[in-house]
Design a protein around this nucleic acid. Structure first.
Length: 505
RNA sequence: CGGGGUGUGGCGCAGUUGGCUAGCGCGCCUGCCUUGGGAGCAGGAAGCCGGAGGUUCGAGUCCUCUCACCCCGACCA
C-alpha cells in the first residue's frame, strides 16, 4: 500500500503516469466534454466539449474566410459511382464505408425490415472530394471561374475498427476545404498556405506546438500527389496528426472532369487541393494540456475563460442573496473585456447551481476553466474577489478589486495561454532525438522512449516492414531541419533528407 | 475481420468449490452540522447481476448461444 496524503490526491485516476489511455478517458468524462454514445463508434459531444468546437469553427472559420474561401454545403450521400471514379481513392476508403442500400422500412412479423432497395447504393461521405468534384465540374468552365475556393463544416463517417472519443470515432465533425486552380503552382501554394493557417491556429489558439511537413508518399491521401500535415506530440510522446492538406493535382479533376477553357483557348484540367481539421483537435488539446487534476483549457479556445463561484454559506438567506447579487455585478464588470493579441472576448460563467461551493470548485478545475473567481460575503464591502489560475499548480489566491479587472484579468489570461504553449513547446523540443542509424532508433524505442526521432531518410514508396514491426511510423519530412549529407537509416543510401519517426495515434 | 479480456445501482469495483434479504467506495436524496480548496454524522433512494435458452430443489456463480464494450493486431483525421 502506498501512503497517500490529501495533497497528493488527484482528481483524475488513474494518473497520466499510471495509465495514459484510461487517464484520457477519465479526463473527458470528468470534464463533462463527451461520452461514447450507445451507437457503435459514435460519440455524444456535450456542451463543454462542443463549446470548444464552436470556438474552433468561429475562429478558424473566419481565418479560412479571410483566405477568400466561401462556405457551402454538399450532400451527406455520395453515389457509389462517384467514388469509383478515382482508383486510389476507392482503394483507400473502401474498407471503412457506411453504405446505404435501402430507402424504406417494412413492418414484418419479425419486426422492421429494410425494403425498397436502391438501384445504386449510396455511400455516407468519408470525405467529399468526389461529390464536390461533380459540382466543380459544372461550375467551372473558364479560367475566369478560377480560382474556386469552397469550404464546408460537416460530419463524415469512416467505419473505424477501434473508436476513441475525439481521436477516432466512426462519425466525426470536421471542416473540409476544396479548391480548384488554373495552375499546378497555385494548387501547391494553396496547400502550403492552408497548412500554415492550421499551424498558426494550432499554436496560437490551441497552444499546441506542431511540426509541419510532408507525408511519405505511401501515407498520403488516397488520390493525392502530396499530403502535408501538422504533427503534435502528446504527453505520452506519441504523435497526433492534427491537420492535413492535400495537393490533388489533376487526379480528381480528371476523374470528375473538371475542365476549363484557358486564356489560350485550350481545354485544360483544373488543379485541385483539399484540406481539413476535425474534432480530433479537441483530443489533441486534452492530451497536450490536461494534467492529473483534469483538463486545462487554453483561454483562446475555452468556452468560458472565467467562472465565478459565489461562496454562499447557507446560514443567512439575506447574506447569500447579497453574495449572489454581488457575483452578478462582478460578472457584469467583465462586459466588453478582451484579452490577447487577437482581442478575444472574455466569456464569464456564473455558477449559481446549488452544488456545494467546495465541490463546485473542483468540478471547474476538472473542466479546465482558465480562471476561477470566488466571491464571498467578506469581499462585498471592499469590491474584492479572489482569482485562481488553472495554470498554477498551487491554485494560489490572487486578491483583486473590481476596478483591477480591466488591467489584471487580460494579463492573467495571456500568461495562462503562454504558459500552456511554453510547457508544451518545451516538452516537444526536448523530446526530439536525432539518430543516425536504425539500430539507435530501435534501441531507443526498445527502452520505452517517449518522443520523436529525427533521422536521415531517403524517401521511398513503400513502408519499411521493420518500422511496422516496431509500431513506428514516419510522421513527416519536416519543412525545417538542418540539412546534412548522411545515410538513410533504412536503406543506407545517401540522403540529405530527414524524417520524424514516432509512435502515433 | 483474427487473438485475448470484461460485462453486477450514475461511475469504479468485490462477490470463494452454486445456497438464504446481492455487497463496497465515490456520486445522488433528506436532516443536523459545516462552508474562502475535495468536511463530518445519521438516515434514505437506486440493480429482474448484458440478453436468450438450458442444467439444478436452488444460478451473479455451471453449460450453450448471442450482443456489447475494452486491450493486442490489420486500418485510420
Amino acid at each position: 500500500m502506498v501512503y497517500m496524503s490529501k495533497k497528493q490526491r488527484t482528481a483524475i485516476n488513474p494518473t497520466r503516469e499510471e495509465n495514459f489511455p484510461k487517464w484520457y478517458q477519465s479526463v473527458v468524462r470528468e470534464a463533462d466534454m463527451a461520452e461514447m454514445a450507445h451507437v457503435r463508434g459514435c460519440m455524444v459531444i456535450k456542451p463543454w466539449g462542443f463549446g470548444i468546437w464552436e470556438n474552433i469553427q468561429q475562429i478558424l472559420g473566419q481565418q479560412i474566410k479571410d483566405c477568400g474561401v466561401k462556405n457551402a454545403y454538399f450532400p451527406l450521400f455520395v453515389p457509389l459511382s462517384y467514388i469509383e471514379k478515382e482508383a486510389q481513392h476507392v482503394e483507400g476508403f473502401a474498407k471503412e464505408m457506411a453504405v446505404v442500400t435501402h430507402h424504406r422500412l417494412e413492418n414484418t412479423e419479425n419486426g422492421l425490415k429494410p425494403s425498397g432497395e436502391l438501384t445504386e447504393p449510396l455511400i455516407v461521405r468519408p470525405t467529399s472530394e468526389t461529390i464536390i468534384g461533380e459540382s466543380f465540374a459544372s461550375w467551372i468552365q473558364s479560367y475566369r471561374d478560377l480560382p474556386l475556393k469552397i469550404n464546408q463544416w460537416c460530419n463524415i463517417v469512416r467505419w473505424e475498427m477501434r473508436p476513441r472519443v475525439f481521436l477516432r470515432t466512426s462519425e466525426f465533425l470536421w471542416q473540409e476545404g476544396h479548391t480548384a486552380f488554373a495552375t499546378a503552382k497555385e494548387a501547391y501554394d494553396d496547400t502550403i498556405q492552408m497548412l500554415k493557417i492550421y499551424k498558426d491556429f494550432s499554436q496560437e489558439r490551441l497552444a499546441m506546438p506542431v511540426i509541419d511537413g510532408v507525408k511519405p508518399s505511401y501515407d498520403k491521401f488516397p488520390g493525392a500527389i502530396d499530403t502535408y500535415c501538422i504533427e503534435a506530440m502528446m504527453q505520452d510522446g506519441k504523435a497526433l496528426q492534427a491537420g492535413t492538406t492535400h495537393n490533388l493535382g489533376t487526379n480528381f479533376s480528371k476523374a470528375a472532369n473538371i475542365m476549363f477553357t484557358d486564356t489560350d483557348g485550350e481545354q485544360k484540367h483544373a488543379h485541385t487541393a483539399s484540406w481539413g481539421v476535425s474534432t480530433r483537435l479537441i483530443g489533441g488539446v486534452i492530451m497536450t494540456h490536461a494534467d492529473d487534476n483534469g483538463l486545462r483549457l487554453p483561454p483562446e479556445i475555452a468556452p468560458a475563460q472565467i467562472v465565478i463561484i459565489p461562496i454562499q454559506r447557507g446560514k443567512d438567506e439575506q447574506e447569500d442573496a447579497q453574495v449572489l447579487e454581488y457575483a452578478k455585478k462582478l460578472k457584469d464588470s467583465f462586459k466588453g473585456l478582451t484579452f490577447g493579441k487577437f482581442n478575444t472576448k472574455v466569456n464569464v460563467e456564473l455558477d449559481d447551481t446549488l452544488i456545494k461551493s467546495s465541490t463546485k470548485k473542483w468540478n471547474w478545475v476538472k473542466k479546465g476553466v482558465p480562471i476561477q473567481i470566488e466571491v464571498g460575503p467578506r469581499d462585498i464591502p471592499e469590491n474584492k474577489f479572489v482569482a485562481r489560475l488553472r495554470s498554477e499548480e498551487t491554485y494560489e489566491k490572487h486578491f483583486l478589486t473590481i476596478d483591477q479587472i480591466k488591467t489584471e484579468i487580460p494579463k492573467f489570461l495571456e500568461t495562462i495561454q503562454k504558459t500552456y504553449f511554453d510547457q508544451a513547446k518545451e516538452r516537444l523540443d526536448s523530446s526530439i532525438k536525432e539518430v543516425d542509424s536504425f539500430d539507435e532508433l530501435k534501441d531507443l524505442f526498445a527502452k520505452d522512449y517517449k518522443g520523436f526521432v529525427l533521422a536521415p531518410w531517403n524517401p521511398c514508396d513503400e513502408e519499411d516492414v521493420r518500422l511496422k514491426e516496431l509500431k513506428i511510423t514516419i510522421r513527416c519530412v519536416p519543412f525545417e531541419y538542418k540539412k546534412e549529407d548522411k545515410k538513410c537509416i533504412l536503406t543506407g543510401e545517401d540522403t540529405n533528407i530527414k524524417a520524424i519517426f514516432a509512435k502515433s495515434y
